[in-house]
Amino acid sequence: MEILARTVHATRRYGPVTALDGVCLEVPAGQLLGLLGPNGAGKTTLLQLLAGLRRPTSGTVELFGGDPRMAARRRRLGCTVQETGLPPTLRVHEIVDFVGGHFANPVPTAQLLDQFALTGLEGRQSGGLSGGQKRRLAVAVAFVGRPDLVLLDEPTTGLDVEARHLLWGAVHHYHQGGGTVVLTSHYLQEVEALAERVVVIDQGRVRADGTIAEVRALVPARRVRLNAPDLPPLAGVESSSRVGDRYELWTTDSDALLRELVDSRVPFRDLEVARASLEEAFLALTSPSTQTLTPTPVEMAR
């Protein structure tokens, strides 16, 4: 399969701060990849390296087989404006026409505006748009050049539910048509619903890389809650917390833990067993307190 973008041991430092630390990543054609990680983890720096905005301090970055800092390598790339940083005095159609003018076969402006529910706003200066309209326009321009790869940095931040649905619909549609997507988002449920592959980054390193099921398997994936006066030590518990009589236990095998509980004859009640969401799995991977539970996540990422 064609690899559209690749980093090999990419490290990026800003003075004493290491934003990315030896990241190896390959983005094959047709994949929808979700980048997850807390703020400051290095997600944005990684996207900036892929888009040619920054050089790696060491290591290499490839986009369509070459250096992304060369303009010709970016002909099949689409990016969003990260913040709502559109030129305020330009009109909506001027911005779309201008960006589209860089590509061989741009999507007609009217069609693109229709897809992002911006029809009727062509003549409006972008500074006069609402926050949601600006955000949709900022994402829409990523698609105007019919790119093979789009990098979407927090595309839905600050949007209401309806606008988020619209954007995810557009991303989904693009992906169905064979497009490749690398995206970051705070809305983990949405990443969980759309992404085929998840890469978790923390402190500049890849902590986990795999399907959603694989990432979930890296952490205690089952949560058992129950009320009990006092619990004896249980072998299947990876971590636990207690508020009054209410226990929260994390385990990789809830069936075995339940058998153990029953055998111990503890008088428990209000039992709840739940599968961890990606969000919980992700928090477990990146929060310092629980990292001891998964001592070698970096190795598992390979």
Partner: peptide, 14 residues
């Protein structure tokens, strides 16, 4: 200083 300038540098233009 504007994010738009960073965006322009991702377009296929030298």
């Amino acid at each position: 200083a504007l994010p738009w300038d960073g965006y322009l540098r991702t377009l296929p233009v030298g």
